[in-house]
Structures are given as C-alpha cells and as structure tokens.
C-alpha cells in the first residue's frame, strides 16, 4: 500500500519525494494547485474521496505525512 501511495504522489509531483524537510506546504514547495493535483490523483487511484478537512499543512509536511494520512483514510475504509 505504502509503495503505491508513494508511486502516485511521485508520479504527480516529483518534487515531493525529493523534499527532505518537514513543512512542504508552508515552505512553498507545493502550491495550492499542486496540492489539488496530488489529492485528485490519490482520489482517482484509490477510488476514495479525501475530505477537505484533511487538506492541511500537517498532512502535507512531506511524503511520510501524506502516506500516513492516506493509510488513515484507507484503514478506516476497509
């Protein structure tokens, strides 16, 4: 699962996997449209709807935090 999430994000935005820090959104590594692109790609791939309340800086700190958010969503679905 983890690999698949990483692959989707990486495929949508290679910058995310390169990023080494801990506050990707606030540091401006990804802008608002790039966030939408990542969310939409994950929604399509996993056939889920990511609630807007999850789209916050804490869940988009880096690749790990995106994976963690996704695992939370997918875990509660199954």
């Amino acid at each position: 699962m983890r690999e698949k999430i990483i692959a989707v994000v990486e495929d949508t935005n290679p910058e995310v996997s390169k990023y080494q820090g801990n506050d990707m959104m606030r540091e401006g590594v990804i802008d608002s449209f790039e966030v939408i692109d990542i969310v939409t790609a994950l929604e399509d791939e996993f056939d889920i709807e990511i609630d807007a309340s999850l789209v916050v800086a804490d869940n988009f700190r880096n690749m790990d935090s995106i994976v963690e958010m996704m695992e939370g969503i997918l875990g509660s679905c199954s």
């Binding site: 990804i30 608002s32 309340s53 789209v55 916050v56 800086a57 988009f60």
Partner: peptide
C-alpha cells in the same frame, strides 16, 4: 498565504 492551500482552515 499558506491558508490558500488549506481550504477548510
């Protein structure tokens, strides 16, 4: 500025 990537906040 960072709020514009976080629709609910």
């Amino acid at each position: 500025k960072e709020l514009f990537s976080q629709p609910v906040p």
